[in-house]
């Protein structure tokens, strides 16, 4: 549970939000944010909505509203895998984020925002998908965390708003990984840090890249049913030659985090509309061309890169 010190953090205020179309400040009017030109952005079930719908990410809307807590550390008493993953892919520690205003770009069900909030960050999580329904519920116990549904290319924030931006496993699911990254950088305060991880262009990610144009055509509920049976079978028969062979051509999840996680992760791996894969040089190049400095990458996760915006 958060400490009293963390509980005392102020929530990210309404004034943070800007009109994603004009960039103008918004005023709160009942269940909506209103732009000076009269454009209204509704607040539905406590979540500000800056998009009409979930556009190209319906698979994520589905998976995070079925697996609302599968990957949350608070739901896995024995393991803190999300915290470990956050540490490994960003190099961040609690002291790096305490009291900072953090944007979690692609919040999903809130697995990393939960860790950041626990560490004492003031967190704003955004997601284009209806995963915000799940993350809003999962983060409700943190007054210093809030969630909005928004498009990463048109985020509802003023430039230089955040001390830290994290985006782990998200940007490659947009039409342009690089474009999405470049859309985030202006939101960073001078001296702020941005840490991302995107899919690398090797091994299983390359194989999935070949599959996805075909698997994403399968209706998501049908494909989810398939994953549910396929992964259950693979757990029982994984030592047999057939599943070892299948795994070599159709890599499925076997992360040692339980059946539920592996069903989710297999579905997640093959159902998105977009699946970008990138080299470490490419990712470092984006950071360099945005003028970010003190770049750090992590041997275990080559396409995880962190950089700082100069003062």
């Amino acid at each position: 549970m958060p400490s009293p010190e963390v509980d005392a953090l102020s929530p990210p205020e309404d004034a943070l939000f800007r009109c994603p179309e004009s960039g103008a400040p918004l005023t709160r009017d009942g269940d909506a944010f209103v732009a000076p030109d009269g454009k209204r952005w509704p607040v539905v079930r406590g979540i500000p909505r800056f998009v009409e719908d979930d556009q190209y990410v319906d698979s994520f809307s589905f998976e995070w509203n079925v697996h609302t807590s599968t990957q949350l550390d608070s739901s896995n008493a024995k393991q803190a895998r999300s915290e470990d993953t956050l540490r490994e892919k960003t190099g961040l520690r609690p002291e790096d984020v305490r009291g900072k205003l953090v944007l979690d770009a692609g919040v999903g069900a809130g697995r990393f925002s939960e860790v950041l909030a626990q560490w004492g960050a003031r967190v704003v999580g955004v997601d284009l998908s209806y995963a915000v329904e799940a993350s809003h519920r999962n983060l409700a116990r943190f007054p210093h965390a809030r969630v909005a549904q928004a498009d990463i290319f048109k985020l509802p924030f003023a430039p230089e708003t955040f001390d830290l931006i994290v985006s782990i496993g998200v940007l490659h699911h947009t039409p342009s990984t690089e474009g999405a990254f470049r859309a985030l950088v202006p939101l960073l305060k001078p001296g702020g840090t941005i840490a991302i991880w995107v899919y690398p262009n090797h091994d299983d990610y390359v194989k999935r890249d070949a599959w996805i144009p075909h698997t994403r055509r399968i209706p998501k509920t049908l494909f989810y049913r398939f994953c549910r049976r396929f992964v259950t079978l693979s757990h029982r028969l994984q030592r047999g030659p057939f599943f070892r062979y299948v795994n070599s051509v159709f890599p499925y999840s076997d992360q040692g985090m339980g059946l539920e996680n592996d069903i989710l992760d297999t579905f997640d791996g093959y159902s998105p509309t977009f699946h970008g894969i990138h080299s470490v040089e490419e990712v470092r190049g984006w950071f360099a061309s945005e003028g970010l400095v003190d770049l750090v990458d992590y041997p275990q996760w080559p396409t995880a890169v962190r950089g700082r915006k100069p003062e």
Binding site: R40, P42, V44, R49, E52, D53, D54, S61, F62, N65, V66, H67, T70, Y130, E133, Q149, T221, Y224, E260, I263
Partner: peptide, 13 residues
Amino acid sequence: MSEPGFDTEGFST
């Protein structure tokens, strides 16, 4: 704008 929402069609874990 219509009220956004999402239905998981009865699926659960």
